[in-house]
Amino acid sequence: MMIAAKTVYDKIQEDIQQIPLNEFLLSPEEASSLRSKKVEQIVEKHLTSQEQDVCARVLNEIHTWGPLSDLLEDESITEIMVNGPQSIWIEREGKLFRHPDSFFSDLSFRNCLDRLSHEANAHITKEFPTADGAFRDFRLSMIGSDITQSSVHLSLRRHPKNPWTFLKLADIGWCRPEDLRIFRELIDKKKNFLVVGSTGSGKTSVLNSFLNLLPENERVVIIEDTSEIPLPNKASMKLLTREDPQNVLPAIDQTQLVKRALRLRPDRIAMGEVRGAEAKDFLMALATGHEGSFGTLHAQDAAQALIRLEMLIQMGAPQWNLSAIRRLIQMSLDFVIVVGREASGQRRFKGAYRLCSLEDNGFLLEPFDL
Protein backbone atom coordinates (compact mmCIF):
# COMPACT_ATOMS: atom_id res chain seq x y z
CA MET A 1 0.00 0.00 0.00
CA MET A 2 2.77 2.45 0.91
CA ILE A 3 4.54 1.94 -2.42
CA ALA A 4 1.29 2.45 -4.35
CA ALA A 5 0.47 5.56 -2.35
CA LYS A 6 3.98 6.95 -2.92
CA THR A 7 3.63 6.38 -6.67
CA VAL A 8 0.29 8.23 -6.77
CA TYR A 9 1.70 11.06 -4.64
CA ASP A 10 4.68 11.51 -6.99
CA LYS A 11 2.36 11.72 -10.02
CA ILE A 12 0.24 14.32 -8.23
CA GLN A 13 3.34 16.40 -7.50
CA GLU A 14 4.48 16.17 -11.12
CA ASP A 15 1.13 17.55 -12.30
CA ILE A 16 1.14 20.28 -9.65
CA GLN A 17 4.53 21.44 -10.89
CA GLN A 18 2.96 22.16 -14.27
CA ILE A 19 0.48 24.68 -12.82
CA PRO A 20 1.56 28.26 -13.72
CA LEU A 21 2.75 30.23 -10.72
CA ASN A 22 0.40 33.11 -11.59
CA GLU A 23 -2.44 33.70 -13.97
CA PHE A 24 -2.56 36.62 -16.38
CA LEU A 25 -4.29 39.71 -14.89
CA LEU A 26 -5.19 37.94 -11.64
CA SER A 27 -4.44 39.37 -8.21
CA PRO A 28 -2.19 37.28 -5.92
CA GLU A 29 -5.26 36.29 -3.85
CA GLU A 30 -7.22 35.22 -6.94
CA ALA A 31 -4.21 33.32 -8.32
CA SER A 32 -3.74 31.49 -5.03
CA SER A 33 -7.41 30.52 -4.89
CA LEU A 34 -7.33 29.29 -8.49
CA ARG A 35 -4.15 27.30 -7.83
CA SER A 36 -5.76 25.63 -4.80
CA LYS A 37 -8.74 24.59 -6.89
CA LYS A 38 -6.48 23.15 -9.57
CA VAL A 39 -4.48 21.21 -6.98
CA GLU A 40 -7.69 19.69 -5.60
CA GLN A 41 -8.77 18.74 -9.11
CA ILE A 42 -5.42 17.04 -9.75
CA VAL A 43 -5.64 15.13 -6.46
CA GLU A 44 -9.21 14.03 -7.20
CA LYS A 45 -8.26 12.90 -10.70
CA HIS A 46 -5.43 10.67 -9.46
CA LEU A 47 -7.39 9.17 -6.57
CA THR A 48 -10.57 8.31 -8.46
CA SER A 49 -9.51 4.78 -9.36
CA GLN A 50 -7.43 4.01 -6.26
CA GLU A 51 -8.17 1.73 -3.31
CA GLN A 52 -9.53 3.38 -0.16
CA ASP A 53 -6.41 2.82 1.93
CA VAL A 54 -4.21 4.32 -0.80
CA CYS A 55 -6.50 7.36 -1.02
CA ALA A 56 -6.43 7.83 2.74
CA ARG A 57 -2.62 7.59 2.87
CA VAL A 58 -2.17 10.12 0.04
CA LEU A 59 -4.65 12.57 1.57
CA ASN A 60 -2.89 12.27 4.93
CA GLU A 61 0.40 13.11 3.22
CA ILE A 62 -1.04 16.17 1.51
CA HIS A 63 -3.40 17.58 4.14
CA THR A 64 -2.57 16.27 7.63
CA TRP A 65 0.17 14.25 9.38
CA GLY A 66 1.32 11.80 6.70
CA PRO A 67 2.79 8.58 8.16
CA LEU A 68 2.19 9.90 11.70
CA SER A 69 -1.61 9.88 11.35
CA ASP A 70 -2.16 6.26 12.40
CA LEU A 71 0.53 6.48 15.09
CA LEU A 72 -1.20 9.43 16.76
CA GLU A 73 -4.33 7.31 17.21
CA ASP A 74 -2.54 4.21 18.54
CA GLU A 75 -2.87 4.35 22.36
CA SER A 76 -0.23 1.64 22.81
CA ILE A 77 2.45 4.01 21.47
CA THR A 78 3.97 6.14 24.23
CA GLU A 79 6.39 8.18 22.13
CA ILE A 80 6.93 9.06 18.47
CA MET A 81 10.41 10.19 17.38
CA VAL A 82 11.02 11.59 13.89
CA ASN A 83 14.68 11.99 12.94
CA GLY A 84 13.82 13.18 9.45
CA PRO A 85 11.36 12.38 6.66
CA GLN A 86 12.74 8.85 6.20
CA SER A 87 13.38 7.92 9.85
CA ILE A 88 10.44 7.45 12.22
CA TRP A 89 10.70 5.55 15.51
CA ILE A 90 8.08 4.62 18.07
CA GLU A 91 8.18 3.51 21.68
CA ARG A 92 5.80 0.76 22.74
CA GLU A 93 6.00 -0.94 26.16
CA GLY A 94 9.35 0.71 26.81
CA LYS A 95 11.01 -0.55 23.60
CA LEU A 96 11.91 1.28 20.38
CA PHE A 97 10.76 0.10 16.96
CA ARG A 98 11.35 1.60 13.54
CA HIS A 99 8.14 2.52 11.76
CA PRO A 100 8.05 0.98 8.26
CA ASP A 101 6.32 4.03 6.74
CA SER A 102 7.93 7.42 6.02
CA PHE A 103 7.15 10.79 4.48
CA PHE A 104 6.94 10.79 0.71
CA SER A 105 8.99 13.97 0.24
CA ASP A 106 10.88 16.68 2.08
CA LEU A 107 8.04 19.04 1.13
CA SER A 108 5.32 16.99 2.81
CA PHE A 109 7.55 16.58 5.88
CA ARG A 110 8.02 20.36 6.13
CA ASN A 111 4.29 20.92 5.64
CA CYS A 112 3.51 18.47 8.44
CA LEU A 113 5.95 20.27 10.75
CA ASP A 114 4.32 23.60 9.88
CA ARG A 115 0.88 22.23 10.82
CA LEU A 116 2.20 20.78 14.07
CA SER A 117 3.95 24.05 14.93
CA HIS A 118 0.81 26.05 14.29
CA GLU A 119 -1.43 23.79 16.40
CA ALA A 120 1.09 23.51 19.25
CA ASN A 121 2.11 27.18 19.02
CA ALA A 122 5.73 26.04 19.03
CA HIS A 123 7.87 27.54 16.27
CA ILE A 124 11.57 27.12 15.56
CA THR A 125 13.60 29.90 13.94
CA LYS A 126 17.25 30.62 13.18
CA GLU A 127 17.49 32.58 16.40
CA PHE A 128 15.56 30.04 18.50
CA PRO A 129 16.17 26.58 16.94
CA THR A 130 14.33 24.58 19.62
CA ALA A 131 10.68 24.66 20.68
CA ASP A 132 8.37 22.83 23.07
CA GLY A 133 4.59 22.77 23.25
CA ALA A 134 1.45 20.73 23.72
CA PHE A 135 -0.15 18.94 20.78
CA ARG A 136 -3.36 17.04 21.52
CA ASP A 137 -2.42 14.33 24.06
CA PHE A 138 1.30 14.78 23.47
CA ARG A 139 4.20 16.86 24.69
CA LEU A 140 5.88 18.16 21.54
CA SER A 141 9.55 18.98 21.19
CA MET A 142 11.27 20.17 17.99
CA ILE A 143 14.94 20.76 17.27
CA GLY A 144 16.00 22.65 14.15
CA SER A 145 18.47 21.52 11.52
CA ASP A 146 21.05 24.09 12.66
CA ILE A 147 21.54 21.99 15.78
CA THR A 148 20.94 18.49 14.42
CA GLN A 149 23.05 19.14 11.29
CA SER A 150 20.48 17.11 9.37
CA SER A 151 16.69 17.36 9.30
CA VAL A 152 14.41 18.88 11.90
CA HIS A 153 13.92 16.36 14.70
CA LEU A 154 10.52 15.91 16.29
CA SER A 155 9.50 14.12 19.48
CA LEU A 156 5.92 13.51 20.60
CA ARG A 157 5.48 12.00 24.07
CA ARG A 158 1.95 10.86 24.89
CA HIS A 159 0.22 11.91 28.10
CA PRO A 160 -1.84 8.99 29.43
CA LYS A 161 -5.57 9.73 29.22
CA ASN A 162 -6.25 7.65 32.32
CA PRO A 163 -3.79 8.79 35.01
CA TRP A 164 -1.84 6.05 36.72
CA THR A 165 -2.68 4.86 40.21
CA PHE A 166 -0.53 2.70 42.45
CA LEU A 167 -3.08 -0.11 42.16
CA LYS A 168 -2.63 -0.09 38.37
CA LEU A 169 1.14 0.01 38.76
CA ALA A 170 1.05 -2.93 41.18
CA ASP A 171 -1.15 -4.88 38.76
CA ILE A 172 1.47 -4.60 35.99
CA GLY A 173 4.29 -5.64 38.33
CA TRP A 174 5.80 -2.20 38.91
CA CYS A 175 5.95 -2.85 42.66
CA ARG A 176 4.93 -5.41 45.24
CA PRO A 177 1.42 -5.15 46.73
CA GLU A 178 2.97 -4.58 50.17
CA ASP A 179 4.85 -1.54 48.83
CA LEU A 180 1.54 0.30 48.47
CA ARG A 181 1.56 0.89 52.23
CA ILE A 182 4.76 2.93 51.88
CA PHE A 183 3.17 5.35 49.44
CA ARG A 184 0.05 5.73 51.54
CA GLU A 185 2.21 6.35 54.61
CA LEU A 186 4.11 9.18 52.88
CA ILE A 187 0.86 10.91 51.92
CA ASP A 188 -1.04 10.35 55.17
CA LYS A 189 1.86 11.58 57.34
CA LYS A 190 2.51 14.53 54.98
CA LYS A 191 6.14 13.69 54.31
CA ASN A 192 8.18 15.72 51.83
CA PHE A 193 9.84 13.64 49.12
CA LEU A 194 11.30 13.50 45.64
CA VAL A 195 10.61 10.88 42.97
CA VAL A 196 13.89 10.29 41.12
CA GLY A 197 14.84 8.24 38.11
CA SER A 198 16.42 8.38 34.66
CA THR A 199 14.73 9.50 31.45
CA GLY A 200 11.72 7.33 30.63
CA SER A 201 11.64 5.66 34.04
CA GLY A 202 8.07 6.80 34.74
CA LYS A 203 8.63 9.62 37.24
CA THR A 204 5.60 11.58 36.04
CA SER A 205 3.37 8.49 36.21
CA VAL A 206 4.43 7.94 39.82
CA LEU A 207 3.79 11.60 40.62
CA ASN A 208 0.28 11.21 39.18
CA SER A 209 -0.22 8.16 41.37
CA PHE A 210 0.71 10.08 44.51
CA LEU A 211 -1.72 12.85 43.55
CA ASN A 212 -4.47 10.25 43.21
CA LEU A 213 -3.99 9.33 46.88
CA LEU A 214 -4.93 12.82 48.04
CA PRO A 215 -8.35 13.61 49.56
CA GLU A 216 -10.83 15.77 47.67
CA ASN A 217 -10.55 18.70 50.07
CA GLU A 218 -6.77 19.18 49.87
CA ARG A 219 -5.56 21.99 47.63
CA VAL A 220 -2.47 21.19 45.58
CA VAL A 221 -0.66 23.76 43.45
CA ILE A 222 1.12 21.95 40.61
CA ILE A 223 4.07 23.68 38.93
CA GLU A 224 5.18 22.51 35.47
CA ASP A 225 7.07 23.54 32.35
CA THR A 226 4.63 21.67 30.10
CA SER A 227 1.16 20.59 31.15
CA GLU A 228 1.39 16.84 31.76
CA ILE A 229 -0.10 16.26 35.20
CA PRO A 230 -3.91 16.26 35.61
CA LEU A 231 -5.38 18.02 38.62
CA PRO A 232 -6.31 15.54 41.38
CA ASN A 233 -9.43 17.44 42.48
CA LYS A 234 -11.43 20.62 41.90
CA ALA A 235 -9.78 22.45 44.79
CA SER A 236 -6.36 22.23 43.13
CA MET A 237 -4.77 24.37 40.44
CA LYS A 238 -1.80 24.45 38.08
CA LEU A 239 0.86 27.04 37.25
CA LEU A 240 2.84 26.79 33.99
CA THR A 241 6.07 28.48 33.01
CA ARG A 242 6.17 30.71 29.95
CA GLU A 243 8.84 31.18 27.32
CA ASP A 244 8.44 33.57 24.42
CA PRO A 245 11.06 33.02 21.68
CA GLN A 246 10.06 36.36 20.13
CA ASN A 247 10.86 38.21 23.37
CA VAL A 248 7.55 40.05 23.21
CA LEU A 249 6.38 38.76 26.60
CA PRO A 250 8.58 38.35 29.69
CA ALA A 251 9.56 34.79 30.57
CA ILE A 252 8.08 33.21 33.71
CA ASP A 253 10.22 30.49 35.26
CA GLN A 254 9.61 27.93 38.01
CA THR A 255 11.33 30.08 40.62
CA GLN A 256 8.72 32.78 40.13
CA LEU A 257 5.92 30.20 40.18
CA VAL A 258 7.08 28.72 43.49
CA LYS A 259 6.94 32.17 45.08
CA ARG A 260 3.50 32.76 43.55
CA ALA A 261 2.24 29.35 44.71
CA LEU A 262 2.95 30.26 48.34
CA ARG A 263 0.31 33.01 48.09
CA LEU A 264 -2.38 30.64 46.84
CA ARG A 265 -3.08 28.80 50.10
CA PRO A 266 -1.70 25.40 49.04
CA ASP A 267 -1.98 22.40 51.32
CA ARG A 268 0.78 20.88 49.21
CA ILE A 269 3.01 21.91 46.32
CA ALA A 270 3.83 19.43 43.54
CA MET A 271 6.73 20.23 41.21
CA GLY A 272 6.61 18.49 37.83
CA GLU A 273 10.41 18.44 37.68
CA VAL A 274 13.03 20.20 39.77
CA ARG A 275 15.68 21.14 37.23
CA GLY A 276 17.18 24.53 38.05
CA ALA A 277 17.52 27.40 40.48
CA GLU A 278 13.93 26.90 41.66
CA ALA A 279 15.25 24.01 43.81
CA LYS A 280 16.30 26.55 46.45
CA ASP A 281 12.88 28.21 46.69
CA PHE A 282 11.03 24.89 46.53
CA LEU A 283 13.00 23.42 49.43
CA MET A 284 12.75 26.63 51.43
CA ALA A 285 8.96 26.41 51.05
CA LEU A 286 9.06 22.81 52.28
CA ALA A 287 11.25 23.78 55.23
CA THR A 288 8.90 26.57 56.34
CA GLY A 289 5.71 24.61 56.80
CA HIS A 290 4.42 23.29 53.46
CA GLU A 291 4.48 19.66 54.52
CA GLY A 292 3.44 16.83 52.26
CA SER A 293 4.93 18.40 49.12
CA PHE A 294 6.79 16.50 46.44
CA GLY A 295 8.30 16.63 42.97
CA THR A 296 10.51 14.75 40.54
CA LEU A 297 14.24 14.98 39.86
CA HIS A 298 16.39 13.40 37.17
CA ALA A 299 18.94 11.07 38.84
CA GLN A 300 19.97 7.42 38.77
CA ASP A 301 19.69 6.73 42.51
CA ALA A 302 19.02 8.41 45.85
CA ALA A 303 22.64 9.40 46.57
CA GLN A 304 23.07 10.91 43.12
CA ALA A 305 19.77 12.76 43.54
CA LEU A 306 20.99 14.51 46.69
CA ILE A 307 24.28 15.52 45.03
CA ARG A 308 22.38 16.92 42.05
CA LEU A 309 19.98 18.70 44.39
CA GLU A 310 22.94 20.40 46.08
CA MET A 311 24.13 21.66 42.69
CA LEU A 312 20.69 22.97 41.74
CA ILE A 313 20.28 24.82 45.04
CA GLN A 314 23.68 26.41 44.50
CA MET A 315 22.41 27.76 41.16
CA GLY A 316 19.72 29.65 43.07
CA ALA A 317 22.01 30.64 45.96
CA PRO A 318 25.64 30.79 44.73
CA GLN A 319 26.66 32.64 47.91
CA TRP A 320 25.71 29.70 50.13
CA ASN A 321 28.34 27.23 51.23
CA LEU A 322 27.84 23.48 51.05
CA SER A 323 27.08 23.20 54.75
CA ALA A 324 24.15 25.63 54.49
CA ILE A 325 22.81 23.85 51.41
CA ARG A 326 22.91 20.46 53.10
CA ARG A 327 21.21 21.86 56.21
CA LEU A 328 18.37 23.11 54.01
CA ILE A 329 17.98 19.68 52.41
CA GLN A 330 17.98 18.03 55.84
CA MET A 331 15.30 20.45 57.12
CA SER A 332 13.02 20.14 54.10
CA LEU A 333 13.29 16.63 52.63
CA ASP A 334 12.20 13.39 54.31
CA PHE A 335 12.35 10.69 51.62
CA VAL A 336 13.66 9.85 48.16
CA ILE A 337 11.60 7.46 46.00
CA VAL A 338 13.68 5.77 43.29
CA VAL A 339 12.18 4.42 40.06
CA GLY A 340 13.91 2.86 37.08
CA ARG A 341 13.56 1.00 33.83
CA GLU A 342 15.07 -2.41 33.15
CA ALA A 343 16.69 -3.58 29.92
CA SER A 344 13.39 -5.23 28.95
CA GLY A 345 11.68 -1.84 29.05
CA GLN A 346 9.72 -2.74 32.21
CA ARG A 347 9.51 0.14 34.69
CA ARG A 348 10.14 -0.74 38.34
CA PHE A 349 9.97 0.70 41.83
CA LYS A 350 13.58 0.55 43.05
CA GLY A 351 13.08 1.59 46.65
CA ALA A 352 12.22 4.30 49.16
CA TYR A 353 15.01 5.90 51.18
CA ARG A 354 14.76 7.98 54.33
CA LEU A 355 17.18 10.79 55.08
CA CYS A 356 18.34 9.70 58.53
CA SER A 357 21.01 12.24 59.36
CA LEU A 358 23.59 14.64 58.01
CA GLU A 359 27.15 13.47 58.58
CA ASP A 360 30.47 15.21 57.90
CA ASN A 361 30.80 13.48 54.54
CA GLY A 362 27.17 13.79 53.45
CA PHE A 363 23.73 12.34 54.09
CA LEU A 364 23.00 9.00 55.66
CA LEU A 365 20.25 7.22 53.70
CA GLU A 366 18.30 4.26 55.04
CA PRO A 367 16.03 1.94 52.99
CA PHE A 368 12.46 2.43 54.15
CA ASP A 369 10.12 -0.53 54.47
CA LEU A 370 7.01 -0.90 56.60
Score class of each variant (00 low, 15 high):
L96V: 09
R348D: 10
I42L: 09
R35T: 09
N321P: 04
G144N: 12
N247A: 14
L116E: 10
S150Y: 05
E291D: 15
I90T: 15
R115V: 07
G345C: 08
G316N: 05
A251D: 14
L328G: 09
R260L: 14
V8E: 03
I222S: 02
A235N: 11
E310M: 12
G200E: 00
E366C: 12
H123G: 01
L370T: 10
L96E: 07
S209L: 02
G84Y: 08
L59P: 04
P230M: 04
V220G: 10
N361Q: 15
S150P: 05
K161S: 10
R308C: 05
R157W: 08
K189E: 13
R139K: 06
A131L: 02
L34I: 06
T199G: 01
L156G: 06
A170Q: 13
D114P: 05
D253W: 07
I313H: 13
L140C: 11
A279I: 08
R348I: 15
A170D: 11
S357K: 06
W320S: 14
L358H: 01
D188E: 15
S236P: 10
I124K: 01
H298D: 08
L116G: 08
H159F: 11
E119N: 12
P250M: 03
R275H: 01
F24C: 08
A5H: 00
L156V: 06
L96S: 10
S27L: 14
I313M: 06
N208L: 00
Q346L: 12
V196F: 09
P160K: 06
R260N: 15
R158V: 01
N121Q: 15
K234F: 04
S117H: 02
E273I: 06
P266K: 05
T204V: 11
L286I: 02
R219P: 07
R308M: 04
G345W: 12
P230K: 03
D360E: 13
V39C: 00
E185K: 13
I124D: 01
F128V: 13
L239D: 07
N247D: 13
G197K: 10
E366S: 13
I337L: 14
D253Y: 07
R57E: 10
D53Q: 13
M1G: 13
F183L: 08
K126C: 03
G340V: 14
